[in-house]
Design a protein around this nucleic acid. Structure first.
Length: 111
DNA sequence: GACCTGACGCCCC
DNA sequence: AGGGGCGCCAGGT
């Protein structure tokens, strides 16, 4: 296939993020052993071109900032979606990032 | 083919 | 605790 195989892996992990929870690029990169969080962000950037729905808005940087908001239809789409799921966002940063943080390891924990 | 940039993250100062 | 620099993989110029 044309796209790197890890694209699907990133999409799959991102799709498993529970509603109302968020994670960061590093956690996904570490879980998939990609070796670089940049690859996750790059894959998610291209995910918009993909036909399947991927909750890319639930993936933030390590500081809990909406660093990818600019890649959405509008710069506020990411924040709107997060707030729609009960996540508070102020100044492009998720409030209580630690509490709503979700780690890919939880997939193995079956929830 | 070399250099720079990017939805990142950690180490060092 | 805050700021700056380097490493990471891939793409574009």
């Amino acid at each position: 296939m044309d796209k790197p195989h890890y694209f699907q892996l990133v999409y799959d992990v991102t799709s498993q993020i529970p509603k109302g929870r968020v994670t960061n690029y590093g956690a996904i990169a570490d879980f998939l052993a990609l070796g670089s969080a940049r690859m996750v962000g790059w894959a998610l950037n291209k995910c918009s071109l993909d036909e399947r729905k991927i909750p890319a808005h639930r993936v933030l940087n390590r500081k809990g900032e909406l660093s990818g908001r600019n890649a959405f239809p509008t710069p506020t789409t990411m924040q709107e979606r997060l707030e729609s799921e009960g996540i508070r966002v102020i100044d492009n940063k998720v409030i209580d990032f630690d509490k709503v943080f979700w780690h890919p390891e939880n997939i193995l924990a079956n929830g």
